[in-house]
């Protein structure tokens, strides 16, 4: 029993790490630009398929490095030509646009790579169980958790220690003042969008190795990421991280005791948070308006 619980908690932690990686990217874009990027799941799938295509040439590790960067570059282009014209308009429009984009990305992936799930090979060194007792502790799973940890650490390093990150944080609070101080807000928003898409691409490459790669891979992760943002706290990136991990682990635990409620539990948590603390666990005051 202990083993079963540990197994599911650990599983939940990994899924939660995906949610968190997705949700952090979504949060970055939402906080600075006020855009709900519905196509985030589409970018995730794109990252995974790019890695899949590159792998015969670059190997697993090369694809892991290059694919998220290519996805981010694609994200920069999308922001420049499709999303930028919509800043300053009702958020309804950017939501609808990314909604349409999500359709196009999913259908595009289906058109190019096929509707069937494709095998996504991971190096043999990573697939062997590390412990006979805790069979679920394969190298790949630990590796994923470690890599998500590094990515999150890197993100917070960028935000807290670099000029770009400082400007992103400042822009989140008051974009107008940042603009008046001589920062090119267009470029800032563009780079910030790219950073968010990079995280989605990375999540895609990692998720493909575990969940299998098919065109709908992103769709199943996008709505839990919204839940992660709401539970964790609006406007707070540490909150988003916490929210993602929390709902992941909660789903994992629920699988042990009440399997049919695996998905429902995160929505129950969201309802409770909204009831008790509408701005979310670590949310900033005044953000909900």
């Amino acid at each position: 029993m202990t083993q079963l619980i540990l197994f599911n908690v650990f599983n939940g932690l990994i899924v939660g790490a995906f949610y968190a990686l997705m949700a952090l990217g979504l949060s970055l874009i939402l906080n600075l630009s006020g855009v709900i990027n519905f196509a985030h799941g589409g970018f995730l799938a794109l990252g995974a398929y790019i890695a899949y295509t590159l792998m015969p040439f670059t190997g697993f590790w090369g694809a892991l490095v290059i694919a998220p960067v290519l996805t981010a570059i694609f994200g920069l282009i999308v922001e420049r030509f499709l999303i930028r014209p919509l800043y300053g308009r009702d958020p309804l429009y950017s939501l609808l646009l990314t909604f349409g984009l999500a359709y196009v990305l999913e259908d595009g992936a289906r058109y190019i790579w096929g509707a069937q799930s494709v095998p996504y090979p991971i190096p043999a060194a990573l697939t062997t169980p590390l412990s006979t007792e805790y069979f679920f502790l394969t190298g790949y799973r630990l590796f994923m958790v470690a890599l998500v940890g590094i990515a999150v650490g890197g993100l917070f390093f960028i935000l807290n220690r670099t000029r770009l990150g400082m400007r992103i944080r400042a822009g989140t609070l008051d974009l107008e003042t940042v603009s008046v101080l001589g920062v090119n807000v267009r470029i800032l928003r563009n780079l910030n969008f790219g950073l968010g898409i990079y995280l989605a691409g990375l999540a895609g490459v990692l998720a493909a190795g575990m969940l299998g790669l098919q065109p709908t891979i992103g769709t199943s992760l996008i709505i839990p990421s919204f839940v992660a943002i709401i539970v964790g706290g609006l406007g707070s990136l540490p909150g988003t991280l916490l929210g993602g991990l929390l709902i992941g682990v909660a789903s994992g635990l629920t699988t042990v005791f009440f399997p049919s409620a695996t998905e429902a539990v995160m929505y129950v948590m969201m309802g409770l948070v909204l009831l008790v603390r509408p701005r979310g666990l670590l949310g900033e005051e005044g953000r909900i308006q």
Partner: peptide, 17 residues
């Protein structure tokens, strides 16, 4: 109590339940 993009986001999430 929520407004704007956050209202939209929560309605999407609740729809999924």
């Amino acid at each position: 109590k929520l407004r704007g993009v956050y209202f939209a986001m929560v309605t999407i999430a609740f729809g999924q339940v």
